[in-house]
């Protein structure tokens, strides 16, 4: 791996240019916790590694427009230490903080988690549930794209070859809102999610659900936004009937594979269990 060129640009333009020039031979690196493993295992053989952590704005969290903008390379540890973010979006922070060990938390980022394009990425269902938007920039300028539109299939993304994920935009949080993310792993830590589920809910004063987004991970080629599951909750007080409808919608959306981490049947069952549990936690957090 010593034959690899290491670049650490300090502006987005510089990074975009380097990425374009490399013509597919470069890989962007945030925390590197997936990339270095792939390089070591021979599954990634970049000629150039472009470290984006020295670019201003990629490593911080800003309050903006009533919501937050999170630099794509911000580490999980930094997210976990941001009190205001944790209060507004506990589900996103807990999802990010579930990735790997304390050591991995010191490096791993939301941007890297999304751009690794694994269907089992922990933070992605939480971001999708939150209606988070990606800010990307390439030679054709800057654009915004919903998180659920970024992954196409395992390892594949909808970004152009020279586009860089700069940040995530989290929308303003209405009163009586809450989110949660849960995953199932055989151990207590260190595993890849067998299934993950993120839920974000907003209630009215009477405790009726006004808005709901439900996303599940590791049950399809990409993390899924299950619109039917959200619709099942809207207008309800999360009674058994509504939850059962959500279960049915989640189960219908799951198209999992059986692999070393779990069987398809098990994954579908657990997706429903976790979505339900996450919804109830989100409601509690919303104070509804």
């Amino acid at each position: 791996m010593s034959g690899v060129d290491y670049l650490s640009p300090t502006t987005i333009a510089e990074a975009v240019k380097a990425l374009g020039q490399a013509g597919g031979g470069a890989r962007l690196m945030a925390g590197g916790t997936d990339l270095l493993v792939q390089m070591r295992g021979g599954r990634a053989k970049p000629q150039t590694v472009i470290d984006i952590k020295r670019i201003p704005g990629l490593m911080d969290i800003r309050a903006e427009g009533g919501g937050f903008v999170i630099g794509a390379a911000t580490s999980g540890a930094v997210l976990g230490e941001h009190a205001a973010l944790r209060k507004a979006w506990p589900g996103i922070v807990e999802a990010a903080n579930l990735i790997g060990s304390t050591q991995v938390q010191g490096r791993a980022s939301l941007g890297g988690n999304l751009c690794n394009a694994s269907p089992a990425a922990d933070s992605v269902p939480a971001l999708i549930a939150a209606a988070a938007v990606c800010i990307v920039e390439g030679s054709n300028g800057r654009r915004e794209i919903p998180v659920e539109k970024v992954q196409i299939s395992p390892g594949k993304m909808s970004l152009a070859p020279d586009e860089i994920l700069i940040a995530f935009r989290l929308p303003p949080r209405p009163a009586k809102s809450g989110d949660a993310y849960l995953r199932l792993i055989p151990r207590t830590e260190m595993d890849i999610a067998v299934v993950g589920a993120g839920v974000s809910l907003t209630f009215d004063a009477s405790g009726t659900c006004m808005a709901a987004r439900v996303s599940v991970g590791a049950v399809a080629p990409t993390a899924l936004l299950v619109e039917g599951a959200g619709m099942a909750l809207v207008g309800s007080k999360l009674d058994e009937g509504a939850l059962a409808k959500m279960d049915a919608a989640v189960a219908a959306a799951c198209k999992p594979i059986s692999d070393k981490r779990g069987t398809a049947e098990y994954r579908t069952k657990i997706a429903c269990v976790l979505a339900r549990r996450a919804a109830l936690i989100a409601r509690e957090r919303a104070g509804a």
Partner: peptide, 22 residues
């Protein structure tokens, strides 16, 4: 691969796996 922690070091105050850093 960052799974065992035997390479743990602290970089600028942050605990990391030195095998997962260039």
């Amino acid at each position: 691969t960052g799974d065992c922690g035997a390479c743990s070091v602290v970089v600028d105050g942050r605990l990391v796996c030195s095998c997962l850093m260039l």
